[in-house]
Design a binder for these strands. Sequence first.
DNA 1: AAAAAGTTAAACTATTCGGTTAAAATATAA
DNA 2: TTATATTTTAACCGAATAGTTTAACTTTTT
Lengths: 205, 205
Amino acid sequence: MEYSNETEEKILKAAREIFIRDGRDGARMEEIARHAGLNKALLHYYFRSKEKLYRMVFQKEFQQVVSDLFQSLEPDLIFRDFLLSFINNYINRLQQHPHIVGFLLWEIRRGGEDFSVTIKNILLQNDGFLPEGIIKKINHAIQKKEIRALDSRHLFMNLIAMCIYTFITEPLLSIIFPDVEVNSEKFLEIRKNEIFKLIWNGIQP
Amino acid sequence: MEYSNETEEKILKAAREIFIRDGRDGARMEEIARHAGLNKALLHYYFRSKEKLYRMVFQKEFQQVVSDLFQSLEPDLIFRDFLLSFINNYINRLQQHPHIVGFLLWEIRRGGEDFSVTIKNILLQNDGFLPEGIIKKINHAIQKKEIRALDSRHLFMNLIAMCIYTFITEPLLSIIFPDVEVNSEKFLEIRKNEIFKLIWNGIQP
DNA sequence: AAAAAGTTAAACTATTCGGTTAAAATATAA
DNA sequence: TTATATTTTAACCGAATAGTTTAACTTTTT
């Protein structure tokens, strides 16, 4: 094994950046190599092909996002606090990697059989907790009359939709609202609060 | 002019399909030609380059979506009915072209200077009504105490976010919720209602 | 020191793909 | 009919690019 792991990391890191920026088809192996401060031959030495390298990157990133989402769950809170902390944690995590959401969504959208399998595996791995965990939490709150009766799947979707929205549409939003920096700390703090208030009021019995 | 317009349409239609499916870089001129039942030379005869053809497609599609959004506005309604009709109209229109949202978002994300300009122009063209129109409508409703005080930009974003969500994430959702057809008539009818109820309850004074 | 693993550089292959060209065929307009 | 516009075919060019190979070089391990 020797001193190889470090190089593998270097390649993956560079590949990640370039793939996220240019997409699967737009990315160039030489550019990745240059970015990693290595040469092209090494890329093929470690990962056999562009395809395999790409899959590795995608898998890792998706894994990370799911894991982040999972860690945003604090299951032992009452629903109101659970909601607050989820919005807060999730947006904070996305803020640290604003570009990956769009990247992942593109790939998910065009994903063939292979990617379905990859995604299924990752979801199963964080077994049943996600999004099952959130759905159950919602249903539980409904039963306890903490919130009104509603379709928990849609509340789940709406929650996620609002959290990811600015990260997907940032370039468009910066044209529509030229006076605000949409993914800035300041704006997102307001946004968290607005999302929470909308949902919380929206689900009162 | 003669009988050329028809061919131009054929090319644009095929290009649209392929670009939406494979993206700008993934798409191939020959595939587009084959799809149109024509040959590659014709594509360059009508549109000088792949780039120009692509821009034409993107511009047309974006134009269409903005125009759809615009036509989803029925300004003379009270806010509750406005909201109802907007959600209904907007989702209905997206349902007819489920794939373009992801396509446009990807392009917006990686869009350079040129696309910024294109987008700005289209937005200015439907001048000030959108999203200004929605924002103003919201602010007006706040003033009239029809709804509670809130940040209208965020309500706008949340509204759009929830409407587009299933169209962006469909392949993922169909894995998470294998038992439902997320963009089916039936599911979306429920979804419209859930979105409306969440927002409407969420914005009561 | 010797062996093994890791790394580089550069040349090379093969393929894909955007774009061009030229000549012929077909359709339309005058 | 004649001129013009459109369409096809097929070959071709040139650039970009994924991937390979080889030989030399460096670092680590034993």
